[in-house]
């Protein structure tokens, strides 16, 4: 089986200083990797590099799969309603032949946003916005999910929903890399761990 994502001594430099120590990673289908590390160790930067938002300054990075990335900033348009946001996302990301998207309506129901279909995203609470952002994974499914602190501002119930999403995704030959600070994904599966260590200066 080929890995979806291979990183070979990948690092990212900002102002010619490595943000994190070089990373080796092979992400196979049906595996989940939890990225840990102290504040400022470069977890977010690593995830953004893996997603392609940042270009790896060193090392080799190969992606052999479709990628969905949800960062700190939700990627949700405040002046569009929930349903309009999801319709946009569904059209914006290329369709994957091997994945089956939900309709925006179904995804909103699953995310517990059923009653707020026509509400502007700008009028949602922080937790609801995060749910809306995560609903992207259902309308525009991808092989690899890169989730940066997906549990932030979610209540217990929604956290469980994220765990269920991850579990379903892994059963579906998906893979995920998750940074998690406080809450870790609680799944009945092996969680691979990747420790990120801050770059040059700390070394």
């Amino acid at each position: 089986m080929k890995p979806y994502l291979t990183a070979n001594q990948v690092s990212f430099h900002r102002h010619s200083e490595a943000v994190f120590q070089p990373i080796d990673l092979e992400l196979y289908p049906a595996t989940i990797c939890v990225v840990t590390g102290a504040n400022g160790s470069g977890k977010t930067t690593l995830l953004r590099t893996l997603a392609g938002v940042l270009r790896a300054s060193e090392g080799e990075l190969t992606r052999d799969a479709s990628i969905a990335f949800i960062g700190h900033r939700a990627g949700v348009k405040d002046d569009l309603s929930c349903i309009e946001n999801l319709v946009f996302m569904q059209r914006f990301y290329p369709k994957q032949a091997n994945r089956h998207p939900l309709t925006p309506h179904q995804a909103l129901k699953q995310a517990g946003l059923g009653p707020y279909i026509r509400r502007l995203a700008g009028h949602l609470s922080a937790g609801q916005r995060r749910r809306l952002a995560l609903a992207k994974l259902l309308v525009a499914p991808a092989d690899v999910w890169l989730l940066d602190e997906p549990y932030t501002s979610l209540d217990t119930h929604a956290c469980q929903w994220v765990d269920e999403l991850l579990d379903g995704h892994l059963s579906d030959q998906g893979a995920a890399i998750v940074t998690a600070h406080q809450r870790q994904p609680s799944l009945a599966r092996t969680l691979h761990r990747l420790e990120v260590v801050a770059g040059a200066r700390a070394a």
């Binding site: 997603a51 392609g52 990628i67 990335f69 900033r73 949700v76 914006f92």
Partner: peptide, 14 residues
């Protein structure tokens, strides 16, 4: 840029 939709332009092969 502020709401994070801009960085999504570089995700995948857009």
């Amino acid at each position: 840029f502020d709401d994070g939709t801009l960085e999504q332009w570089w995700v995948g092969d857009q």
